[in-house]
Amino acid sequence: MPALERPVPALGRLVRRIGHSRWFAACTPLVVPADRLVARLTRGRVIALGMVPSLLLTTTGRRSGQPRSTPLLAVPDGDGYVVVGSNWGRSEHPAWTLNLLAHPAATVTVGGREIPVQGRLAEGAERDRLWRLLVAEWPAYQTYVNRAGGRELRVFRLEPRQRVEPG
């Protein structure tokens, strides 16, 4: 599995500091379309505008059946990656988590490479361990828990799967 891009250190520190603020959570969804465009134009080499270690997750829409791509902060874990459905602390789960629960086969784009993965909802002791990894990378996740009004943020482990060749 390719390594996640390392953010620009000064920019990464600044973003982590302001990541707890309500205005950041309110503004970030407005930036996501631009982030998707940058990821597409750079063929997945720049995601989250290079501010945090990230990947582009492409799920299958649970209702539409169409591919849906979402830039996400990610943490490496062995041969896979860990992501969380924080939705910036909003009370509802982000759509990508519902898609991944309905259709666990997905792809991630990391460093310009597309990798087939299987999404698995982490639970129990594994979730606790993965949560610590996520909060170490993005401390604002703990703030998002408090904002989410009792919603448990879904933590997923994205594990590599074999690419199935047609025919």
Rank of each mutant, 00 (worst) to 15 (best):
V31I: 07
D35R: 07
T28G: 04
L4N: 03
R22H: 07
R17L: 10
V32T: 11
P9G: 12
G19H: 01
V38H: 05
D35L: 15
P9K: 11
L41A: 09
L14E: 05
P33M: 07
A25V: 03
L11I: 10
F24H: 11
A39K: 13
R17F: 01
R22E: 12
E5G: 14
A25P: 04
G19W: 03
C27D: 08
R22Q: 10
L41K: 02
L4Y: 02
G19F: 00
V38D: 07
R43S: 12
T42V: 07
L37C: 11
T42Y: 13
A34W: 13
R17A: 10
S21Q: 04
T42I: 08
H20S: 09
G12N: 08
T28K: 06
G12M: 04
L11C: 04
G12D: 11
T42L: 11
V31C: 02
V32W: 01
A34K: 00
A26R: 13
A10K: 13
S21F: 00
A39T: 11
A10L: 15
G12L: 00
R16C: 05
P33D: 09
A10Q: 14
T42H: 09
G12P: 04
L30Y: 06
V38L: 14
V31S: 02
L14Y: 10
R36E: 15
S21G: 01
A26V: 07
A10V: 15
L30K: 05
V38K: 08
V15L: 09
A26N: 06
L4I: 05
L4T: 03
E5W: 04
R36A: 14
P7N: 04
W23T: 10
L11S: 11
A25T: 00
R16F: 01
R13W: 09
L14W: 14
L11N: 04
R17M: 02
A10F: 15
P29A: 03
P29R: 06
F24P: 01
L14C: 08
V8A: 10
H20Q: 07
R40W: 13
I18L: 03
P7Q: 03
L4G: 05
L41M: 14
L41G: 08
R40A: 15
P9Q: 09
V8N: 10
P7V: 05
F24S: 06
